[in-house]
């Protein structure tokens, strides 16, 4: 799998005139224009929230809140970054706030899992391979998922955002408030730690 981390940025630039018109209309009070912006970016927004929260219900709530904040603050949008980056930054802040609240109240009652509910392991299936190999692949995927869950939040967040394929490194840097170099280091370090956790294959 090859993840093109520049495609979204390029797409942003390619669609800039149309998006700029939508933003201008939304600032003028056109709710349908804002609805089009929501539709355009909802997938990326939900994935960012999922990367931070791990539970879809929470991610959807946070995404909705973030879009409402964006609607209210749209007149203050200065286009210093793309609308997508600006929106994702709002989503990420909301998601982190939700995560802090959740940890504060529930950390005594729930295990420190990612809230993945095993769906990654269950959904990991390689079509066209033998059942035995599929079992091995599934077990290995489960080990990787568990290793990702054990990463520190900084490494895990960065890895999930990068691996989602929705965002470029610059966008991730804006969302997390760190330089691009830090994003790249975190991704590499996360991969190294996962490799060590699942059998030291990174050092092979």
């Amino acid at each position: 799998m090859t993840i093109d981390r520049t495609s979204d940025t390029a797409a942003d630039e390619r669609d800039y005139p149309a998006e700029h018109a939508l933003i201008a209309a939304a600032v003028a009070g056109d709710r349908e224009a804002f609805g089009a912006l929501v539709q355009r970016h909802e997938r990326a927004a939900i994935r960012a929230a999922l990367a931070a929260l791990g539970r879809q219900a929470d991610a959807e709530d946070v995404t909705q809140d973030a879009f409402l904040i964006a609607w209210q603050k749209l007149p203050t949008f200065r286009a210093e970054a793309s609308f997508r980056t600006w929106l994702l930054t709002i989503v990420w802040r909301q998601a982190l706030a939700r995560r802090r609240v959740r940890q504060r109240w529930w950390q005594r009652f729930v295990t420190a899992d990612r809230g993945d509910d095993g769906r990654t392991e269950a959904r990991f299936a390689s079509p066209g391979v033998s059942p035995e190999q599929r079992v091995v692949d599934r077990e290995r995927a489960g080990a990787v998922a568990a290793a990702i869950a054990r990463l520190s939040p900084k490494l895990r967040d960065t890895l999930l955002l990068a691996a989602s394929g929705e965002y470029g490194y610059e966008q991730i840097g804006c969302m997390l408030g760190v330089p691009v170099g830090t994003v790249k280091w975190r991704v590499a370090e996360a991969r190294r730690q996962i490799g060590m956790a699942v059998g030291g294959t990174r050092d092979d």
Binding site: A145, A163, G195
Partner: peptide, 27 residues
């Protein structure tokens, strides 16, 4: 191969089940 596996797993950890129709909710 491990990187590919990590990408696949991480990508699926951020995949939403179904389409929540955020536009309708927000509007």
């Amino acid at each position: 191969k491990l990187d590919e596996l990590i990408d696949t797993v991480a990508q699926r950890m951020t995949e939403a089940d179904g389409h929540p129709d955020m536009r309708t909710r927000v509007m």
